[in-house]
Amino acid sequence: MATAARNTDCLHAHSSDALLICEHCDTVYRRRPLARGEVARCVRCGAELDRHRALSANALLALILTAMIVFVQANIWPIFTLGLNGQFSATTLWGMIVTMWEQGAQVVAVLAAATLFFFPMTKMLVMGWLLWFARLGRRAPGFAPLMVALHRVGPWTMSEVFVLGALVAIVKAHTYFEVVADPGIYAYGALTLLITIFAGVDMRQLWEQTPEPKA
């Protein structure tokens, strides 16, 4: 803290987050409270600056817990089953990852494991942890590094792309095989819906909503 204070004069201490800088074009704005459903857009470049926070920490935590349950189901249940002359073949997400590894496409296996399992899981666990404490009006242990990690992991979760991929695969397979949709695909569908809701939530609001710990 002492070294930072030497170099930067941090404005939030005295003007209480009064300023906002557009990340897409560097235009400086004065913050103002937004009405329900309102989205503030940059006058210069049109990027979104800020939006009304409709969901409380409680509501968000409930959604995260739901998403975690659905995520577990999406991972343990088979996605769909193919049938050919009385033989059947089904796979789960991890079955798919292992097969790709064994078939010599290790790069794809790693990509799929990261974007469909490890990153989404990290995101949900970190969000749950942070929100659990935010609900109590506190900053969770490890708050700052976890917030940074969350920001970095953000663009690398691809569950919704996988759902579309599964639909394409079903249609392709349908020409030659009998296709039976399994519970996993429905769990993935529900997960996509939940992810769409999260997409509109800026977790950075927690910086403002929780008090800074006294050093």
Partner: peptide
């Protein structure tokens, strides 16, 4: 993902 799923199935 389509290729990965079809490979596994």
């Amino acid at each position: 993902f389509v290729v990965a799923l079809l490979t596994a199935l």
